[in-house]
Amino acid sequence: MNCKILKGHEDRVWQVVWHPNGQMLASCSSDKTIKLWRLMNDEYKLIQTLDDCHKKSIRSVSFSKDGNFLASGGFDAIVGVWMFDGSVYKLIQQLEGHESEVKGVAWSADGKYLASCGRDKTVWIWDHEDLEFSCNCVLQAHDEDVKCIKWNNNILYSGSYDNSVIQYIYGEDDEWDHLQVQVNHQSTIWSIDIFNKLMLTTSADCTAKVFAIQNGNLKHIQTLQGFHKEPIYSGSFSYDGLYLALASADNKISIFKKDSIDEFGQPHFALEQIFDAFEFDVNCVAFNPKNYLLAASSDDLNIKVFNLQL
């Protein structure tokens, strides 16, 4: 398989995400930096290293939908906000409030909100006015460490060490109402991805599940199990929903392809391939928003971009 290796980080690479234009990657690492890589002539060039915000590992990074903002979450309990000034990303604010390690950051689709979650069991929602960010809400619905957050338009989902997924909706009384949605995972929820009305959850129980989001509830479609022997840290749908990829602590990446539609019109996925991708844990997989390039990052310090269409 055609694969590019992006070297540069000096410690484990926690997450890698695509710029919405599909031409740039942001990666974050325990080396306390964020690196930006531009795709030019089929090569990835390191164009910027952001190292002026965090004093500890950077666990999560997220582009806003228009690409103008970048957010980062670190083990120093800080959420960093960066703005694109036409040529580079510049740190504009450090949001303080979390009590301990920040595990996830995510922008809402309209860019109005930034959410962050962490080991203090909370989800924080931040809003902004004139580029000034302030806290909109602190949600304490989980019993344990919150591992991941994902927006679906303006509905937020969070997954936790308490094995649950919680959904947050902005209610009429100016409050974020929360509701637990049933995923029935037996261990930590490590990641949530959403494509149209499909949700993909991955868990330390070594399974991944696909759900249909229906009127605010989840309807279970498929459980992908028996493929990985270790926790599945990350899952990603391709831009068209035709593929999904999983990343696991067993150093492998698996790719599934939509192969049938059930009687309710829901897609089912079948294993396309599973391969040894890195020498150590795979922490993250992310499909490009425009094509079948799959970026992944690992504890072995490397980032790899696989081209699934050879």
Partner: peptide
Amino acid sequence: LQDCLACSG
């Protein structure tokens, strides 16, 4: 590492 990251302290 998983214990450590997963632990809520």
